[in-house]
Computed example of a mutant assay.
Amino acid sequence: MKLGVFTVLFAQKSLEDVLDYIASKGLNAVEIGTGGYPGNAHCDPDTLLADAGKLKAFKQAVESRGLIISALSCHANPLHPQKAISSEHDSVIRKTIELANRLEVGIVNTFSGCPGDHEDAKYPNWPVAPWPNDFQDILKWQWEQKVIPYWSEIGALSESAGVKIGLELHGGFSVHSPGTLLRLREAAGKAIGANLDPSHLWWQGIDPVQAIHILGREGAIHHFHAKDTTIDPVNVNKHGVTDMQSYALMLDRAWQFRTVGYGHDLKVWADIISALRLVGYDYVVSIEHEDGLMSVDEGFTKAVQNLKQVLITEPLGEMWWV
């Protein structure tokens, strides 16, 4: 396995400075934002697709520092009911797929998106209960009319480009659990898989190790994010896991994101890494920093230190004891 980082946390720095800093930490890979919610501070698809020289220089900047690009990421909502939003997000996903093909990057990460509840809706509607039956009607309409048709088209496009789609299982979007990911994958093709982030699984009550087994047995893990979560044992009984308070209200929230090792100990993370290898995932573990108690540099540095203790980096070789 290789250790990488999602570079959007260093958006204020130039690409060259970011790459130098990441290489100095002994990492092997970078995941780079190309638009959507993460922005495109280090990688503008329009610029690189229009200029072969700039495209070559961009690739060389990464490779000359001994790094690889693990994925291009454009987390967005291409199913948003407001056409101005969905069109923009759809466009960046398509451009990112083309750019990934040109750069020989195999993964594009994004969100599944979430539609509204009818054609003239203004806002996404994320049903979280099967009753009253209205919610089932909404869910059926969303999947049959929006989710499956859109991702079937994008799945075919990405497959023809030699690119896989890593959907992050994130609350608020149609694909948010192993089950919903596999449902879409069955309908839209095997180019669709997961950008698995345990931080979003923990707050939903999903065990990341079991999620890895469920998805890994299907070959459905395309990329992996390393981010932690802690659940407050008092606040969760007041607000529940679907706590809608701002992430900034850390003292009052039911759960909050932490850097690796500050939500769950390293034995838990060792189990996660071992499960990934067990199901055949031997690619990049990409650090994502969204810890409200630590600066970017400190949170990133501690994640690097903790993950280096548990990451399995060498080929297995033969089992000499068998």
Rank of each mutant, 00 (worst) to 15 (best):
G166F: 13
L167D: 10
L167N: 12
L167S: 11
L167H: 12
E168D: 10
L169Q: 11
L169M: 15
H170C: 09
H170Q: 11
H170F: 12
H170V: 14
G171E: 04
G171N: 06
G172R: 11
S174V: 03
V175K: 10
V175T: 09
H176Q: 06
H176D: 13
H176W: 11
P178H: 05
G179Y: 08
G179M: 03
T180S: 15
L181Y: 10
L181C: 11
L182W: 09
L182E: 03
L182Q: 09
R183D: 01
R183E: 04
L184R: 07
L184S: 06
E186F: 07
E186A: 15
A187W: 08
A188P: 14
A188S: 14
A191G: 15
I192C: 14
G193F: 13
A194I: 08
A194R: 04
A194L: 08
A194T: 04
L196V: 08
L196T: 04
D197P: 13
D197N: 15
D197T: 13
D197Q: 12
S199I: 04
S199A: 15
H200E: 01
H200F: 06
H200A: 05
H200V: 06
W203Q: 04
W203K: 01
W203Y: 14
Q204W: 00
Q204I: 00
Q204H: 00
G205L: 03
G205Q: 01
G205R: 06
G205S: 01
Q210I: 01
Q210G: 00
Q210E: 13
Q210R: 14
Q210A: 06
A211E: 02
A211F: 06
A211I: 03
A211D: 01
I214D: 07
L215H: 03
L215A: 02
G216E: 01
G216P: 02
G216K: 02
R217H: 04
R217I: 02
E218R: 13
E218M: 08
G219N: 06
A220D: 01
I221W: 07
H222W: 13
